[in-house]
Simulated scan of single mutants.
Amino acid sequence: MGRISLKDTRQKEIILAFYTVAKKIGLENASIAKVADHMDINPSLIVHYFKTREALFSGLIDFILEQYSDIYKTNGQDYTNARELKQLIDNLFSRKWNKLFDDSVFYSCYALVYRDKKIRSAFKALHESLRKLLTDALQKANKNGVINIRNEKETVEIIFALMEGAYYYLGMVDSKTDYTRKLNMLKKHALLQLGL
């Protein structure tokens, strides 16, 4: 059994502190100095592990992926029946996303893809990873005869467009009743894509 590296542990602590500071004061205001202050450490220690603020962003994007991939960890990861696949879609179209990662930090991070090529590349990799997780699930379900779709990747693109559009748009809906109704409508269309 291998030992957990102190470097990995320290980097995770710094990324979590960066996330906490970004939630509190906004990503655009989160700096190495403010993260160090939050952790009550010298900023040079953060620079030792993350040479630049952009490197911290890259670590934060990896953290987002790690958090979001938890959505795919359902009890029946073999997708041998419709119930398991419906549970995955329920998870994708649920408030669980919001509990995994703060929307304001996510969308602030997303805005940076238009200004920074490295962050754009990291964010693109994040989205490709999430799509691959769903593609893998649909391929298993297809292989097991749970669904019968010709192109899993195309179906995944449609489901993600519904889901991402839903979260962007529904972030502005104040009524819990309207939010739930609209989210359920979009989830129904995702299930229709799968023939469920």
Rank of each mutant, 00 (worst) to 15 (best):
V47S: 11
V35A: 07
I46P: 15
Q77G: 14
K51S: 13
R83L: 13
D40T: 08
E28M: 07
V105N: 03
L100F: 04
F57E: 01
D40V: 08
L56Y: 00
A33C: 01
K118Q: 13
Y110C: 02
I32D: 08
F57A: 00
S58L: 10
V113Q: 11
R95Q: 08
T74C: 14
S58K: 04
G59N: 03
R115K: 10
T52W: 02
T52A: 04
Y72W: 07
V113T: 15
A141G: 04
Q77D: 14
H48G: 03
H127E: 14
D90S: 02
D90M: 02
C109G: 07
N142H: 10
K96A: 14
F93M: 05
I71N: 01
G76M: 02
A30C: 15
L100T: 12
F101P: 14
R83G: 03
D40G: 07
A55H: 12
T135I: 01
E84R: 03
N75F: 05
Y107R: 05
F93A: 02
E54M: 00
E66P: 04
F123S: 07
T52I: 13
Y79W: 06
K86C: 08
T52V: 09
D116L: 01
L85K: 01
A141Q: 08
K140F: 00
C109A: 11
A137R: 02
I89V: 15
I119D: 03
H127T: 07
L112C: 03
C109I: 12
K34D: 07
A125N: 10
I46A: 10
T52P: 13
P43K: 00
L65Q: 10
H48R: 14
N91I: 02
K96H: 13
N29F: 02
T74L: 15
K34T: 06
G26H: 00
Q139S: 12
D103K: 12
L60M: 12
K86T: 13
T74R: 11
E66W: 04
H38I: 06
D78P: 06
S108W: 03
I119P: 10
S31W: 02
L27P: 12
A55T: 08
L100P: 15
R83N: 10
A30S: 15
Q77E: 15
N98V: 01
F123R: 03
